[in-house]
Amino acid sequence: MTGTAQGAAISFQGVGKAYPKAGGQVTALADVTLSVPTGSITGIIGRSGAGKSTLLRMVNGLERPTEGRVIVAGHDVGAARGGALRAIRRDVGMIFQHFNLLASRTVRGNVALPLEVAGTPRAQIRARVDQLIEQVGLGPLADRYPAELSGGQKQRVGIARALATGPKVLLSDEATSALDPETTQTVLDLLAQINRDLGLTVLLITHEMAVLRDIASHMAVIEAGRIVESGATYDIFARPQHATTRRFLSGVTGATLPAFVAARLQAEPPGDQVIRVTFAGAHATDPMLARLATDLGISANILGGTIEEIGTKPFGNLLISVPHDRGDQARAFLETHGLTTEVLGHVR
């Protein structure tokens, strides 16, 4: 998804951001080039302080790049000012970790706000607001105040509000980080449904790989202000290239080492080499392990494994151990047969 801006709803072109500080500056972003495909759900993952929010906030001009350009639906956001910038903002909805709802307005009043701001006639506002509230499943709660809603319900109000002006792009800044896992799932489902039904492009940031696994078609990994990896979510889960990506992945892609193995894991030999084997699709791995034994005479121990779904495609993960002096050979064999391997360590 890097490279050309063809079919891109948002494209970051050599974007940098430096904040002034006493005696110098802080570089929040450096040389970010990234395209967000139209109609995709694209997720950006990174640790705290990596620059995720800074990047997201450039899409609606809440931050301006100090280098490069951010193009949204053909407009250079960083160069837009005043009325032109406000017009772009109406085409970009945003939801927030802490919801940012007005305590003084009911659900209806909150959803109506962007329409009032846009100067929509009262009668139209009324009908549109009712429709939006139904769309996010809050019909019976329309006259409640935010203080009388649960976190999940508040975020639904946030989503309805973000959709009010019919934007083409929806930005989500850690929108599920303040929610419990079950509520997170229902909010993610709603985002996926909106993406499908309205053809809206969603750009979300998160520090949880599980969020990407569940709804993102594309993703990028950001580390210290730089994009270290980007592409289709499935491909990155199947073949993570960067150490940071692998770290995020461990624990999310189901298979984890049994505790007694993990406790004895060493970086260097002696002992058996512990390998993570990742396979895309419904690849039969059992035959591969059987052939490892018959063709090479290497017998592998299975330590753990899972198969799960990313997008709609199955994705498998197997942890095995082989004698360390045969490790390289075994991995080469598996790789030539289309599997991805990673050495986790050695165990005696």
Binding site: L62, A87, F96, H98, L113, E116, V117, A118, R161, T165
Partner: peptide, 20 residues
């Protein structure tokens, strides 16, 4: 955060003062 949300909606400073 509320000011931020209003800015993201495309509100003018005057609208933010009056409505938020």
């Amino acid at each position: 955060g509320l000011i931020e949300a209003a800015r993201a909606m495309g509100a003018t400073p005057f609208q933010i003062i009056r409505k938020v």
